[in-house]
Amino acid sequence: MAKTILPGHGSGGKLMNEMIDTVIRKRFGAGNVQLDDSAILTVGSSSIAFTTDTFTITPIFFPGGDIGRLAVNGTVNDLAVMGARPLYISCALVLEEGLDFADLERILESMKSEADSAGVAIVTGDTKVVPNGKADKIFINTSGIGIIDKRIQRREIVPGDRVIVSGTIGDHGMAIMALRNNLSFSRGLQSDCAHLNRMIAKITDAYPDSIKFMRDPTRGGVASVLNEIVKGKQYSAMLSEEALPVRDEVKGVCGILGIEALYAANEGKVIIIAGRADADGIVKLMRKTPEGRDAAVIGEITTAFPGKAYIETAIGGRRILPLLTEEQLPRIC
């Protein structure tokens, strides 16, 4: 049978990475296409970060946000984790015939208010309408440009460095999954959708040399980001199960569906690799911000299983956290 696109090709896992490597970059030129959250480009004497992201989500409104808010924050965060100051955003809309105008306006209002709060301007855009059934209500693409005022926030990672997360994990992914499956006991569960540029600016100002890497663990979750960090390296990433901030509601839904919170999407969190000496200071500073109030050191860079991410469980056993092929599917029993 001819090879076709499968859902797994969009999951943030192995299939997607393979497709990017062997199908996309091969054609566009591996030297041109940068794989980080944003491409870093030199324009005149300035260094800028440039990123793009397309958003599709069912349902388009959910507890804690909507597709518009997701689009603005996702793009702002992809710029911020590079150490860039987000400035401008574009907004391209693919609208399905029959979409309620009221819904569209509500989404646009939400984008505007989020952009204002993040301090970015939406400056250009595009609209397309496709026939009924050819899209799922609305798709949004946002590109963003930010300026690197000081330095790109990427440094050499070494064993002993700490892994920090800015708050509870899996909130967005499990809120959506609970909603899609009508898990009525999951009330109170909501997406963590938020822009992190202000919090990130605070910590990069205070600890510019200690922060070696930042990434927002969206699709594929925390475990996938850690795998990206250690891939092909001589070090490994160790997480401590006891230190992981996970809401009880998230644990509950994960348990029912047989899904791990470490692989569930987040839309308002950042993973930071920081030097050992300053890790606690960074967490303390993050906790003073609303976006980072549950920040914690959750692990460290070790040499136990080079190239792998693993977790030390509450009873002291260890297991590997692999890069998943694709999205986790709920189990039978």
Partner: peptide, 15 residues
Amino acid sequence: GTHTTEFFRTGVKDL
């Protein structure tokens, strides 16, 4: 099957 995975997931098999 759930035991199969839980022995790994909880880290008990590592002990």
